[in-house]
Amino acid sequence: MEPEVVSSEMVLPAALPFKRVQMSDKYPKGQSRGRHWKHLKQIVQAENYSSLPAHEPNYLNIESPPSMYPSKKYCDITGFEAPYTDPRTSLRYANPGVFKRIRGLPDDQIQRYLTLRNAAIVLR
């Protein structure tokens, strides 16, 4: 290791004296580890909240419901309020100037704009 890297102490030592089980013992080198963790979705599923009484608060049911108010539509490009939607790209736009720009946009940019508000078509 380079001296400045060592002196900055940025690299975590492989073995630490205060640990009972070292990292290298827990995850031996060369062995395929596979995936030993669950995503939050899987964690929540495994908790089996539906079997618990409904009035008891848990991670899932404290989540806030959708807004009661109708969602406003904003222009995807400029952020202004958007009265129009382009039927071809389904992007929202505020005025004809923006419309012109939308029509000139490449496909990947259109998809990225749609992804921003979680409206892109995901092909699987």
Binding site: E63, S64, P66, S67, M68, K72, Y74, G79, R117, N118
Partner: peptide
């Protein structure tokens, strides 16, 4: 517009496609 458009997602999560109530609600 970005200066206040981005923090606005805290009050209107719908803007980034999260269908939940904002801070005030």
């Amino acid at each position: 517009v970005e200066r206040f458009r981005c923090p606005e997602v805290l009050f209107q999560p719908n803007m980034i496609g999260i269908d939940q109530a904002g801070l005030d609600e």
